[in-house]
């Protein structure tokens, strides 16, 4: 019997180790990032306790003055970190984005999956996916230059008439930099994500079921409403959750159009806001100058809350999408 050379054995070992490292790296990265964020947050958690998520005042304190000792940690005098405006800013802007994006994405996906065929479908699909690839800073720029003035002078004044029914629609409209503009900018970014996933799901609805409906004399809309959409329901909710996670984590575009509100809760649809992601990006530089380090810890805690929320929506999304797949397998007759 011929012996395998030791060179080949070594190569095999290297291969095993290399693939092991590569395969475990996503888990390691996630754990490492989570660990850093948690550890960095601890001083801020001790300083603020629950007030971090219920407080409104975000103040780094006097970073050139005396230090303050509280709950066993050190911070600049007068420091207070209440993140409620940013949490609300993130949630409100992303929910507005979803309210705009969901119907647009659903109808676009329906048209892509069932109405367009051949090269037209191909081109429109590509366009939708290109939209997903536009850098967020470009969309943010469009938001500042085009959308914000339009909200301030066009859309906003019209929407204030709805204020008779829903108080949040009442003016003043302000500069156009704020909640509504952020929501619309986020919607532009979220639509392609939801559309692409929903289109794929709709294409997987067996034609047999749709023909069952058509053969029964259902209109196109009835087939969509009673057969296709119920069939993909969980997957569609999953697609929405993916989009939501994206909207909550988006930084640059929101930072550019949000109006950068601090210590201030939005009181209507046009109020300036700030999101958690945008605050981390915009405040980190000045936070570095806090000698006590507490400002950085507070931003870390903000990152922790954001990470928790996005992980939660992502997990929910995966769960729902996989449940649709299971049911599809169960259905096969």
């Amino acid at each position: 019997m011929k012996k395998v050379s030791s060179g080949i054995k070594t190569a095999d070992k290297v291969f095993h180790v290399a693939t092991g490292i590569a395969a475990s790296s996503p888990v390691l990265f996630l754990l490492a990032i989570a660990a850093v964020v948690v550890v960095q947050s601890i001083p801020s958690i001790r300083l603020m306790g629950w007030h971090f998520i219920t407080g409104i005042e975000w103040n780094v304190g006097n970073t050139y003055g005396a230090l303050m000792h509280k709950n066993g940690v050190t911070a600049a005098a007068g420091a207070s970190f209440g993140a409620l405006p940013f949490i609300i800013g993130t949630l409100a802007s992303s929910v507005i984005a979803l309210m705009i994006a969901i119907p647009v994405a659903l109808f676009t996906a329906l048209i892509l999956a069932y109405r367009l065929h051949g090269w037209v479908q191909w081109i429109v699909s590509i366009l939708v996916e290109l939209l997903a690839g536009i850098p967020s800073v470009v969309i943010g720029l469009w938001g500042m230059v085009v959308l914000a003035p339009f909200v301030a002078h066009g859309l906003g004044p019209v929407l204030t008439h709805v204020g008779v029914l829903i108080p949040y629609f009442r003016g003043p409209v302000g500069t156009g930099m704020g909640l509504l503009t952020s929501g619309i900018v986020l919607a532009v970014m979220v639509v392609p994500i939801i559309t692409a996933t929903t289109r794929d799901l709709l294409q997987q609805v067996p034609v047999l079921y749709r023909e069952g409906g058509i053969g029964l004399g259902m209109t196109t809309w009835e087939v969509v409403r009673y057969i296709a959409v119920p069939y993909i329901r969980e997957g569609f909710i999953g697609a929405i959750a993916l989009g939501w996670g994206r909207a909550m984590g988006e930084t640059m575009a929101v930072l550019m159009v949000s109006g950068n509100a601090i210590n201030f809760l939005p009181h209507n649809l046009y109020s300036p806001i700030s999101s958690m992601a945008a605050v981390i990006a915009s405040q980190l530089d000045s936070a570095m100058s806090d000698g006590s380090g507490m400002a950085v810890h507070a931003l870390s805690e903000l990152a922790l809350v954001l990470l928790g929320l996005t992980l939660l929506t992502n997990l929910l999304a995966r769960l729902l999408v996989s449940r649709t797949h299971h049911r599809r397998q169960g259905v096969r007759a």
């Binding site: 067996p206 047999l208 409906g213 058509i214 029964l216 009673y226 057969i227 069939y231 049911r327 259905v331």
Partner: peptide, 28 residues
């Protein structure tokens, strides 16, 4: 749509609406 309400069809493979109950499959 009117044609298909006058002319019913049964397909090669059974295709009850998978998200609906037995009752609703017929009632829809």
């Amino acid at each position: 749509v009117d044609v298909r309400r006058m002319i019913g069809m049964v397909f090669q493979k059974p295709n009850p609406f998978p998200t609906l109950s037995i009752f609703d499959n017929i009632a829809l």
